[in-house]
Design a binder for these strands. Structure first.
Lengths: 141, 141
DNA sequence: CAATCAGTTTGGAATCATTCCAAACTGATT
DNA sequence: AATCAGTTTGGAATGATTCCAAACTGATTG
């Protein structure tokens, strides 16, 4: 339980990432970038909020939402929608898709090289494809 | 503006469809089946509710939700999730996917024969693929 | 036809995730 | 040190959906 003050080491790295993304490096954003930093994760606003609290970072839920969306726009995160009122933020922003388990609401990555979508028709006039999302819904057999 | 009483013709057809789906044919369900009956449509609970009101059918929003879910389970409808807190019910239950326009929230069908997903890995142990959903997100160019 | 009862419907309260807001705060700049 | 635009925050507001207990209604039976 270290109520860290101002760790230079990783802190500076976070600052760099934020600056690179065009976001002002504030205490909260820095802390959140660090929380997200390690590995590929699927998290909800609520879960990130709890995680932050446990890490001793004072961040309001409103800020979590703001930050999550800013990070998503900045390309640091990707939003994955799997059900009405159920969206996750994925720290893996690379090309990939997901298995979604309807029983427990969990997500599992499917590597982008593995899966392919063919035959997408041309989008309606004046529209451009932004992204193709594939959700493979699975259930307990 | 005919406040129809009890049209035999289509009414009986609705009853048949409900019975076939294993649902007791009530006034509300019959009326809703008929509303949904024509062509391929993408509707939300709210929009169906309004439509019902305008058609002079007294149905509570709660019943709309119940019915929509029952119909979905019975295979009369398919639920399409496109965004957090944004799901549609699709009267087209056949094999197909969708374009989703992020600007105005509209859906456009993509025929199932046109599009194909290849390379879906085997699902995790004990799980079975329920369905593969593809959402092609488009934006104004 | 009347009684009966499980299945339905309903309005309103409750829940849940998310957004909004105005006030307080804080990083960066002068 | 002053300044100010960008941020954060708690709490209220919103919106969609679900829950609930009471009233209702098809279908069945005698």
């Amino acid at each position: 339980m270290t109520v860290s003050r101002k760790r230079k080491s990783s802190g500076e790295d976070a600052v760099r990432r934020l600056r690179a993304a065009g976001l002002r490096p504030t205490r909260q954003r820095g802390a959140l970038v660090e929380l997200l930093g390690s590995g590929h994760r699927h998290l909800s606003a609520e879960s990130l909020h709890q995680e932050a609290q446990q890490a001793g970072i004072g961040v309001s839920l409103a800020t979590i939402y703001n930050t999550l969306h800013q990070f998503t726009e900045a390309g640091l995160l990707r939003e994955v929608v799997v059900g009405a009122g159920r969206s996750y933020f994925d720290t893996n922003t690379g090309d990939h898709q997901h298995f979604y388990c309807e029983d427990d609401g969990s997500l599992i990555d499917i590597e982008g090289e593995a899966i392919a979508v063919a035959g997408v028709p041309a989008p309606p006039k004046g529209m451009a494809v932004d992204r193709v999302d594939v959700v493979v819904r699975v259930k307990r057999a």
